[in-house]
Amino acid sequence: MEQAREQIRSVDAGPVRVLGVAFLLAMMACQVMSGLDARPERFTGAIVVLLAAGALAFAAAVWGPVRAAGAFGGAVLTGYAAEVAGVLTGFPFGDYAYGDVLWPRLGGVPVAVAVAWGGMGLAAYAVAAAVVPVPGWPRIVVGAGALTAWDLFLDPQMVRMGLWTWAHDGPYRGVPLSNYVGWLLVSALVMLVVQRFVGDREPGYGLPALYTVMAVMETVGFLVVFQPPDPLVAVAGGLTMGAFAAPAWRRLWQR
């Protein structure tokens, strides 16, 4: 019986990794088209779906499909609950509202936003697992930081595209500091949920690669592709995400 359960939890890793690479390449192509299009917001949904699909494939290859699906679903629900609370009460991110671009929605929250929490939540956790080999609070803290670092790119980009607006301007491209406090809190909860499903299993290479690709493409996008360019966001996001990706790859290559 136990052997049968393990067979259900396992998967042929090779083809699944290839599928993950295919989703990653498709996501990169969509990001390039988005950066060159006069209406980049049109590609947001496709980018998020491909991001999530790639993350799930890479996660299934190293953690098994059941654990990967549980971790992804838990991260999505955690992010969704936080976004609903944020829209209704302003906690934990601050007062903000979604524009009319992202659909469909549940409870006033675009589905794509919740799915993005899941995809990048898995990637950030894998980076943290590479940096901190033993599960526990240090891994949770690193993972929360890695996921929040992504929002140094995400929020300025989404605000400039009109996907959401803040009631009160903040010091970082109009984004209030309360947003990043909220991100750290919610990201820590996401890491706790993912760790509950994954435990001490290896992070693999696919999810850290996804995280790194996202960091590189956003950096290049803000430097030379998006109009107008924004070197501040490029440097802030690139250095911060890089500060998590670099030690992760160093540990992975040392194994």
Rank of each mutant, 00 (worst) to 15 (best):
V76N: 05
V76P: 04
V76E: 09
L77C: 06
T78F: 00
T78N: 03
G79C: 09
G79L: 04
Y80S: 04
A82D: 06
E83D: 15
G86H: 11
F91D: 12
P92Y: 14
G94W: 07
A97Q: 14
G99M: 05
L102R: 05
W103M: 12
L106H: 07
P110Q: 04
V111T: 12
V111W: 07
V111L: 15
V113R: 03
V115M: 12
V115W: 09
A116H: 05
G119N: 01
G119Y: 03
M120T: 10
M120R: 01
L122P: 00
A123L: 02
Y125Q: 04
A126K: 07
A128H: 10
A128Q: 10
A128E: 07
A130H: 04
A130T: 04
V131Q: 10
V131W: 08
V131P: 05
V132K: 09
V132P: 09
P135N: 12
G136F: 12
G136D: 12
W137A: 13
P138L: 11
R139A: 07
I140P: 01
G143C: 04
L147R: 00
A149N: 08
A149D: 03
W150D: 03
D151W: 05
F153I: 08
L154G: 14
L154H: 02
D155I: 06
D155Y: 11
